[in-house]
Structure formats: C-alpha cells, structure tokens
Amino acid sequence: MHTVVNEPVDKPVNKPLSRAWLRERSELGVSAILVGLGVLVLVDAIRIHTDFAQRGPVGPKAVPVVVGVGLIVVAALLARDVLRGGRGEAEGGEDIDLTEPADWRTVLLLCGAFLANAALIGVVGFPISGAILFWGAAYALGSRNYVRDPLIAAGLSVVTFVLFNNLLGVPLPGGPLVGMF
C-alpha cells in the first residue's frame, strides 16, 4: 500500500516540480483526497472490535477494508492517469462559462451565506436565517438591488416557513420573532 501511495511523488523525478507543473496537474489533489479517505476507512476498520457480537463468518470489518483498499488503488490509478496526461473534464452547463478562471470570491461568499444559515437557524429561527441565506447568496452571485433583494428574501423565507410549518406539517424553528405573535 505504501509504495502505491508514493508512486505519484516518485515519478516526476526529471520534471520540474514547479507551481505551474502542479497547477496543470491539480487533479492529483483528488488522488490525495482519495488516499486520505482510504486511510481513514482502513484505520477505522482496524479499530472495530470483532471479538463479540459477530454473527456469521463475515464481520463488520470486511467491507470497510475492501472499500479502503479500493480507494487507495483508484487513487493510484487516477494519479497514473493524470501523470500520463489524462484530465477529468470539468462539467459544463447552462449557466457555466468554463473559459473564465474560477471566481473564488463568489464561491467563498456563497459558502459564508450557507454557513450563516446553519449557525443562526437555532438562534434567530428560520424566517430570519433563511432570509439571510437567500439575500447573502444572491449578493454573492452578483445581485445588487438593495430594495428588491431583501424583500424577496424576507417574503420567500416567511412564506416557506408558513407553508412548511403550518400547512405541510414539516416543523421549522420559528425563533423569537414567531414567539412574539
């Protein structure tokens, strides 16, 4: 297993390990993720106690071991493919322009809006945290209408809350605002 993991590092001896070289082969990062995941699964599998409660010849360890080894093997094969010039094709789509470089600011702002909702939903309730999520996400994606955006966000959030909580019977946290009524 160790030799396989090291393979992508060993191979490029005669090539410059420069930034540009790595950027061109950033897909090796996917291999790294897969190896990490594989090691995690294997370590966790070894940790499982099988001395009690096992029924049947195959215990709870077998499949994690297979999956863990599989992850590492696939990581190695993927690394080989990348080093031989293979590239995963980035997914296209209706609203996707692949000719432009990735816009990380937008992505980070969007992540922030999403996590803000997760952090606030228990504190201020869904109607407010949901509105923050929507407005924040719209802002991140380039919408700058300071009247319409928050109005849509608040409206959508309140309507969704009433629809799910009161009509569809799917409870969402109301927060202090709803408690006042």
Binding site: L110, A113, A118, I121, L133, F134, A137, L172
Partner: peptide, 24 residues
C-alpha cells in the same frame, strides 16, 4: 435572474436537509 435562481436552490436545499431530522 441567475442570482435568485441559485440562491433559491441553496435556500430550498437547506430547508430540505434541515427538515429531515430538524438538526443543524
């Protein structure tokens, strides 16, 4: 408008994931 579209997708994704177990 695309900002509203994808903001809405994230919004309803959050509603859906939260509604499964009511768990942050």
């Amino acid at each position: 408008p695309r900002p509203y579209l994808y903001a809405g997708i994230l919004f309803f994704a959050s509603v859906g994931a939260y509604a499964v177990n009511a768990d942050v």
